[in-house]
Design a protein around this nucleic acid. Structure first.
Lengths: 208, 208
DNA sequence: CGGGAGATTGACGCACCTCAAGTAAGGTGG
DNA sequence: CCACCTTACTTGAGGTGCGTCAATCTCCCG
């Protein structure tokens, strides 16, 4: 399948899929980070999911796309037109099974996020996001020229707010609160130093 | 596939799948309503999805179940052991494709719910739920011995609260508010009369 | 008719949003 | 290289929507 694809790069802010597109392309995200988002009639944006390297894009093989997919950082991906994708899937049962497995995992993850969003406090959401980001960045962290326990958040405060269902101000306040409590350090420039992973986990679990 | 399945009935409150189960069964829901839910360590329950007649149960072909599946009403379903399901899928590409399509639809729906939950007010959530329920019950409504525009909510106030991420009291207050505004009628016993569908839609959209 | 679960209503507090000002960081032109 | 401007972030004060606690009411179902 990789042979059928076209290598492509997107700059920060570029849109790969727009809500309402028919036969939107599919792609494998190789480097960078993207957001799946929905803009309300009122112009407010909600981020319903993030895409990390290795993730597959193209939840709309059938029908039209319901969400935008936008690059949050410079991105490289391997893109396939929807028809090619459909044909390949039909011919390669292994591929289809793999995609099904992945999609089922997505469903489970979305349900977890739903459970989180419906009850968690602002502090728990922010702490959970930092934790999750640290886990996903993992070994890459060092690549950003940051030390152990240090990560570079790929999202602005505003994007974090859209993702967590909060306002910019509240996100900022919770970050400050975690810093004051000695749980994290904020050396500036979107970097976060995780001083006390256990306390961070506690905060994410909702233990005030 | 239907031939391989076993017809089964569950009473209200019975559990089909428990979180942590390995090789949980798959099933087709034929009559009744079920909930997919998660109980937090603190004992609070969050409903992450509802299952209506025609829906497929078994988002955990691989790995272990992450959520409980419980009957909200008396239920009849056609159940298959996970191994049978796996074998059938492997042998019947059409079936696998159908399941993939369904699962992708689930993903889209979950994302919509996520967008809704992250920003909507209590009134919008309640109004949206009534609207959605009315749509899904659709023609069945008449079967419950209720007139035009009348539906019988399949959930208690507490279950609605768990689903919408609110408390019982808040759900109750929003229902009262909609009644006072002349949008709905509450003749008692979980029944809801939709007096002004347009106003209900407006409320669901967040128009105060 | 009585008991009990579910639903409604009220009073009150707190977490988060809104509005607004101030501060730090990054990029551009002189 | 520095002044300037823009954008992002922080911090503060005040209002509000929803949660919490508690009392009352309604509807079943025996």
């Amino acid at each position: 399948l990789a042979g059928q694809g076209v290598q492509r790069r997107l700059a920060r802010g570029e849109t790969l899929v727009r809500a309402g597109d028919r036969s939107a392309p599919c792609a494998n995200l190789q480097r960078g980070l993207m957001k799946i988002c929905h803009t309300t009639p009122a112009g407010q944006e909600v981020i319903v999911g993030l895409l990390w390297p290795g993730d597959f894009i193209g939840q709309s093989l059938d029908g039209e796309a319901t969400h935008d997919v936008v690059a949050l950082t410079p991105v490289t991906l391997c893109q396939f037109p929807a028809p090619v994708m459909a044909r390949t899937l039909a011919e390669q049962p292994t591929m289809e099974r793999a995609l099904l497995t992945r999609t089922l995992a997505d469903v489970r993850q979305l349900r977890s996020r739903l459970a989180q969003l419906s009850r968690a406090t602002a502090l728990a959401r922010v702490a959970g996001f930092i934790e999750e980001t640290a886990r996903r960045l993992g070994t890459e962290a060092a690549a950003d020229g940051v030390g152990p326990g240090m990560i570079a958040l790929p999202l602005s405060r505003g994007e974090m707010a859209d993702l967590l269902g909060l306002t910019i101000e509240t996100v900022s306040r919770q970050m400050t609160k975690l810093r004051s409590a000695g749980v994290i350090g904020l050396p500036g420039g979107r970097r976060v130093l995780i001083r006390d992973p256990d306390a961070l986990e506690q905060a994410a679990e909702g233990v005030a």
